[in-house]
Design a protein around this nucleic acid. Structure first.
Length: 270
DNA sequence: CACGGATCCTGATGGC
DNA sequence: TGCCATCAGGATCCGT
């Protein structure tokens, strides 16, 4: 579910509402991806100062330490002042003076981890190898090209790996490669600089547009205020196998790459 | 060490 | 309220 746009949209939907809140209690249900690294009682009394994002991680800055939250495949957050019963898949909850933050995650690939600081070993183990943020000026075409030239895997896999550029998941990798006219099976090292420039621009454009549209709601994603996204309506290739390419009319193809579905236009993408 | 495949988990969907 | 196989937005681990 959540790629960079969905995580960013989630952040924007509750960051200002939770900022300055005092944690009253915390709850951890069924195990998520990793142990949280702190007893839940130890969170009570701490203040949530700000909410940042790094790649697909949300970083809740506390007055002492921080919480890293990852939504995995099926996770979504809600932040509400209204109280309601915990649902079957609500596996983490933070009750604060300004509302309750809940993680709903049926598949439990998500994670909530406490780290004493961003530089700590536990935080760096998760964040240390992440690539550049695509929606900042640090993401620059020339260094992007240099990184790609060192990679021997196919370009789709390199985008998904997240150690060159973060936040591009399966939907947006397909969409970005379509927009750039690049075939997903092309080896990264084979991309010319001009084509890398197109790819660089496509990543910025698609992710920015997806954030503006509130992310993609394929099945049940919603932001922390419960609102669905609309970018899926603008998808050109993802989930459109067999349908006519909107640019050339040829049927969109679906292939498997690294146990993920890849969608592309065999004519428009070379 | 860089790469590709198996793996964690639950639910929805479609064919039989 | 049928059963089984397949697929799903992610990322780590393990063998080569």
């Amino acid at each position: 579910m959540p790629e960079l746009p969905e995580v960013e949209v989630t952040r924007l939907s509750f960051a200002s509402r939770i900022a300055g809140a005092r944690i009253i209690s915390a709850y951890v249900g069924k195990p998520l991806r990793w142990p949280m690294g702190v007893e839940v009682q130890q969170l009570a009394g701490r203040e949530v100062c700000a909410v940042r994002r790094r790649g697909k991680y949300l970083l809740l800055d506390l007055d002492d330490g921080l919480l890293l939250i990852h939504l995995g495949m099926s996770g979504s957050l809600s932040f509400s002042g209204l109280s309601s019963a915990l649902g079957k898949h609500d596996h983490f909850e933070l009750v604060t003076s300004q509302g309750t933050l809940r993680l709903n995650d049926p598949r439990r690939f998500g994670a909530v981890v406490f780290a004493p600081s961003e530089d700590s070993t536990v935080a760096q183990k998760l964040l240390g190898k992440l690539g550049v943020e695509p929606l900042t000026d640090e993401f620059e075409a020339r260094s992007f090209h240099e990184s790609l030239m060192r990679r021997h895997s196919v370009i789709k896999q390199v985008l998904l790996a997240g150690d060159v550029v973060v936040g591009v998941g399966n939907i947006y990798a397909c969409e970005v490669l379509f927009l750039a006219g690049i075939r997903p099976t092309l080896r990264a090292e084979r991309l010319s600089f001009p084509r890398t420039v197109k790819l660089h621009a496509a990543i910025k454009k698609v992710l920015t547009r997806a954030v503006e549209q509130g992310g993609s709601t394929l099945r049940d994603f919603s932001n922390a205020s419960g609102e669905a996204g609309h970018f899926q309506l603008e998808a050109r290739v993802y989930g459109r196998a067999g349908q006519a390419c909107q640019a050339c009319g040829v049927p969109i193809k679906m292939i498997r790459q690294g146990q993920r579905s890849t969608f592309f236009c065999p004519t428009c993408q070379r």
